[in-house]
Structures are given as C-alpha cells and as structure tokens.
Design a protein around this nucleic acid. Structure first.
Lengths: 207, 207
DNA sequence: AAGTTTACCATACAAATGTATGGTATTTCA
DNA sequence: TGAAATACCATACATTTGTATGGTAAACTT
C-alpha cells in the first residue's frame, strides 16, 4: 500500500507534476535542487528515492529526466471551487469553498489561480455557460477584450473587459444584459482576475 | 516563412512528436540516433539544426531533452476527414463529415482518459466548439444521449450517441448537420470513448 | 535512552549528453 | 561546371546528469 508523503515530498511531487504539464518534460535533479534552493542534487536524489519507495513515481535508471508519475488518478486533480460568479447579474463570492471539482491536469493552472463556478448566461456568446468552471488568474493585467472576474459592491461578475479613457466597461456578450460602466475611481470596484480557462464536466448530465 | 522539410527531417520531426506524446518527454540525441540507426549523434545534431533553422522546433542549448516542438498543431496529428477521404469511398454519404477531431498519434495519455481537439461546429448546441479540448474516457459504456467519439472509416467524429434496435445514431446538436445512421455491424465503425469533460484555454485570443 | 526517519550537506565518479570541428559522397540547382 | 545543400561518418571535449557514499542535525518513535 502507499505510504503518506511528507510535506516536502508532497511539494516535490507537485513540482514534478507541474513541470511535466507546463513544460512538457520532467525536470532534472539539478533543476529541482535549484528550484527548492538545495545546494546539491543528492538531497533531491534522496527525496525522489523516498517518493519512489512510496510508490508515487517511477524512475528509469541512468536516463535523464526519466521520472514517471505513477499516480494516474492525478489526471484529475481535486480543486476547491471558491464561489459562484454571475455572468448575468452580480452574485456573491463565498469565503469558503462551495464545491470541489476534479480538474483535468491539462487545465492545471499556475499555483496562484483559483476556480469559480459560473451562474447565468450573459456570457453565452463567449461560449461560457451556467455551470461551467472558470479558471481565474489574479496576477495578470487585464487587456481589452479579455474576460475578467470583477467585484462590484461586494458582488462578482464575469464580463468582457474594455478600458476607456476615464472608465471601464464590462460588456456582456449576450445582448440581453446591459454593459456596466464604472468610473476608474469607483471605490468598491476591483478586478479579481482574468479568466484563463474554462472547464465543464459532462459526466452528470446525460441528455 | 517556413521552409519545407526534407523527407528525413520530416521523419525525425515525426519521431520527436511521437515520442513526446507517447513517452511524455522528447528523446535525447543518442536515442534518436539509435532509433534511426545512426552511428553517432552528430548526424542527428545536424538534422535537428536544420529542422530548427526551418522553424519547426526550438532547442534549449545545453539542456538534455530540451527540444520544443513549435508547430503546435502538430501535437495533434490530423487524421483524414470523412469528406476528403471520400474519392469513391462509400463514406461520402455523410455530408457532415467536415466535423472531425484530430487524434493524437498515440492517444496514450494517463491511463484512463485522453484528449482530443475538436474541429468543426456540429456540437455547437452542446456547447462544444471548434478548438475546444475534449477529455475522452475509452473505458465507459456509452449511454443514450451521451457525447461520444467514434471512428468511422479512418475519421473521427464527436457526436451525441443513441442506440436503436439495429443501428446506432450519431446526432449533431447543430441542425445544420444531418444525423449519421450506422448499422451495428458496420465493419469500420468503433466507439473510441465517451466525452467526460471539455476544456478551453482562453489565454490566446484576446478579443 | 536508543533507534529510525527525515532533511539536509559535501565529495566523487562513470556515463550520458550536447556541441564543435573536420571529413566524404551524393544530389540539387543555377 | 561549380556552388550549395543534404546526408552521413569520426573524433574530441566540457557539462550535465544520475548515482554512490559518508556525514551532521533535528524530529519522531519505541
């Protein structure tokens, strides 16, 4: 049976998965060491041996970058959904996770991103629908035309973003909803982040 | 602009793509050399330089296995499209053959599921669009109404599945496309898997 | 109190790896 | 006919890489 990983081992495994997905190739020992600030590769080597002993990875001896990740269930990674966000009219973000989705690893977002569940159909024409999960990155500067999550008077909306001279426009793709225009100095307005991906699970609805 | 690759260069690029998809990591020079029967790595080295010069790959100097494939559409190898394959084929019957997916050469992603990129808009009303990536599970029995990936005479389609008495119906959500009806005994028909999720990256299009 | 696991460090070394350089033969093209 | 591109070969070399070995210190069992 699989033993539990220690915190550090977990972090290293996470890094392996992240690198494999984002860069396409697993890192070398040296790269892992450098990322975690280790002064030599032997430290990493020993951690990998521990992780392998516990059955989470498999190493192909002598070959470079030949770390195989054997926790295949990890194809879907459970992630907390932080709240619901309105595509139509504003809705509140809950402080705690309201749900969990199993996100495919391809959709694996940079660490700083989070998930929100979309309610409403105002982004219909941008191909985002009620029930979809949007992946939000809070650390990107919004560019005109991008879809953003914004907070307006304590409620969150998903809209297309346009910066004008003195104000910001939040546009719905669906003509049924009016464009929101906000003065740049509006006190309770804040861009939460940019929608970098959309995921929808099909397993429930079978019709 | 990109220059044409020679036959051998093409074969090497194909091998790079195949390895990247099946093994997860690009091969080393030595591995390529051994696969093609070259006696030394310098030969491969020169071919890679040529391929890079022509813009199909990018190499990260000094790092092992650091071959980046820059022709990203090639990540999914296009399979013949129903309509085009046609030329005398019985398949020309189905006029909506334009709707296809591109199958990865070796769809051997993590154990259970693999990814397909959707081309065409026949599933528009099921909220799946051209460019979306669908996650396919080959180990589930298709139920009526579920969206499946099927192979029909060397081309792959994504459609909603309905089992009738003697035949199988593959229905497009988009009324522009006609329903495909296949006899259950059709020799070259095969269900590849069930679509369990849809993912779309928003990072590229910015308006 | 003694043993084990975890978490690092340092040094050492053979093999793997990418790269540089120079050479030969064939084909392609102006 | 001659230059250029292609397709190989061989040798050489500095790094990179994986791995082995030995050591220290803290934390956690038993």
């Amino acid at each position: 049976m699989k033993t539990e990983l220690t915190e550090i081992q977990k972090k290293i495994l996470d890094y392996l998965i992240e690198q494999k997905i984002s860069k396409g190739i697993p890192p070398t020992l040296a790269e892992i060491a450098s990322h975690f600030g280790y002064k030599n590769r032997a430290t990493v080597q020993q951690h990998l041996q521990a992780i392998e002993r516990k059955g989470y990875i498999k190493k192909n001896p002598k070959l470079s970058r030949a770390i195989e990740i054997t926790v295949e269930d990890k194809f879907f990674i459970p992630r907390p959904v932080l709240g619901e966000v309105a595509a139509g009219n504003p809705l509140t973000i809950y402080p705690d996770a309201i749900d969990t989705v199993e996100l495919p690893t391809i959709a694996r977002m940079p660490k700083d991103s989070f998930l929100l569940k979309v309610k409403g159909d105002s982004l219909k024409d941008a191909y985002i629908f009620s029930g979809d999960i949007v992946i939000v990155n809070p650390n990107l500067e919004p560019k005109n035309g991008q879809i953003v999550v914004a907070i307006l008077d304590d409620a969150a909306v998903v809209k297309r973003f346009y910066k004008k001279k003195n104000e910001i426009e939040l546009v719905s793709e669906n003509p049924d909803y009016k464009t929101i225009v906000i003065d740049k100095k509006h006190p309770s307005f804040k861009i939460v982040g940019i929608v970098v991906g959309v995921y929808r699970s099909m397993t429930k609805k079978a019709g």
